[in-house]
Amino acid sequence: MRIFLFWITIIFLFVACSGEKKSDQLKKEIQLKEAVQKDANQLEVSSKMVYRVPTPIEFYMFFKNAGGEFNQQKLLAVENMNKYLSSKEKAIAFGMYASDLAYSAVYSQSQNTVSYFETGKKLADDLGITEGYGEDLMNRFKANLNNVDSLYDLTADSYWNVFNYLEDQDKTILLSYITVAGWIESLYQAFNAIEKYEENELVHCIADQQYVVENLHAFINEVHKDKMQEDDVFLMVVDLVKAYELLYYNDENVVMTEEQFKSIKEVVVKSRNLLVK
């Protein structure tokens, strides 16, 4: 026992010392950062804009409160998950399945929720995303099949944990593909659930996405400026920005005309069809 305690102490001292070395290293990094900050770009470094967009679950809550109904018809088939092969395709699929998961959770569709969570987990494993879709969360899902509030909560947790993990790991390209694909899928499902254009809260909900697309575009432009005009997924956001821009020219009492509704729907459907395998 004494020998065991001795080695435990040695290991602890070793970790503490390497921690001190890390602390010195951090100090050096801070000093280097100070030197970088004090050059001509100081204004950019010390004051920056970060762009955020609502998660799919927040979007669907908004859509539901506007009177939107659940429409199962155009949800992604889970069995097609294996058709997405590259990391980019898997990230896109993950975003879209995450959106369908959120849709199902908000409308208390338990079976769908579990099914989409399982699909998301497999894709997350393939992408090396180790947080948000662990076995523990999977077991909690299965244990709460009949508790719709818990399923909602677990769904919100899973997406949020993944988002923060990717951001912390600086995996911004994966994060961007997931966010764009998830949002296009959300918009597609929302359009799909609206039978025809009417001047009502649902159409207002669609029109309000002009602010989301503005922020999404600004985010991608900030982080992936060099890819903005080349990447096929990012170009979908550019097309949507152009379609939504027309809303700024409407008179104050006009939220969205029928023509604008159809035009934006066309862009959304076209984009979604390109993303789906």
Binding site: M49, V50, Y51, R52, P54, E58, F62, A66, H204
Partner: peptide, 12 residues
């Protein structure tokens, strides 16, 4: 100075 731009939905 950090600025975060977010979307707030009506009715929420």
């Amino acid at each position: 100075t950090v600025r975060v731009k977010v979307v707030v939905y009506s009715g929420q």
